[in-house]
């Protein structure tokens, strides 16, 4: 994978080296897919969202303002796409929530898998906007400021909604008897 900075890769692509875009795909397809999956809870939707996000990133690269982190800008597109995709599905019940079937690794017990499934279901029961907040904070590790930029929300609101979302998750998980 390229060690060039995101900004340098963006400059290469804008200068006409379309192949340099591959580095951005390699660098970020996994995190974009993860964010999309956590929000849509559907593998096919997450794939579609990821593909659309990179296409939009490519097509709008000249509109990218380098005073922001490329990563944050791309996430802004990704979260919007995932929320829109999820909105199209509407009224999807928790019974539709997907988990990813993977071979059982050494460090993976059935209890852990069950817990992750319950967490995913609890997240999916959150309001879509709050779900995005939890994903950005806990699965992607963004700061309050970055989340504010990505979601176009004031930091004060980011905090209050995140706190409330966690409170709701706590209640959901206690109800599911997984809080320990």
């Amino acid at each position: 994978m390229s060690e060039l900075s995101d900004q340098a890769i963006v400059r290469q692509v804008l200068a006409g080296d379309v192949s340099a875009f591959t580095h951005l795909v390699d660098r970020y397809q996994r995190v974009v897919y993860n964010a999309a999956f956590r929000i849509t809870s559907n593998q096919q939707d997450a794939e579609d969202v990821t593909q659309t996000v990179f296409l939009k990133v490519y097509e709008n690269l000249r509109l990218y303002n380098s005073k922001y982190r490329f990563y944050s800008w791309m996430y802004r597109i990704a979260i919007n796409e995932a929320l829109n995709q999820q909105a199209k599905r509407r009224k999807k019940t928790s019974a539709d929530v997907e988990t990813v079937a993977e071979p059982l690794a050494e460090d993976r017990t059935y209890e852990k898998i069950e817990l992750e499934q319950q967490v995913q279901e609890a997240i999916y029961r959150l309001d879509p906007g709050d779900r995005a907040l939890v994903v950005l904070k806990h699965f992607q590790g963004f700061s309050y400021d970055e989340i504010g930029f990505i979601l176009d929300l004031p930091v004060r609101k980011v905090k209050s909604r995140l706190y409330t979302a966690r409170q709701r998750l706590k209640e959901e998980l206690i109800q599911a008897k997984v809080s320990g």
Binding site: V25, E47, F54
Partner: peptide, 19 residues
């Protein structure tokens, strides 16, 4: 919570869609 792995072939699908 562990990250999920993108399906195989997604990278190629993405790149194929890039003009």
């Amino acid at each position: 919570v562990r990250p999920v792995e993108p399906p195989e072939g997604l990278r190629n699908r993405i790149l194929a869609a890039i003009p």
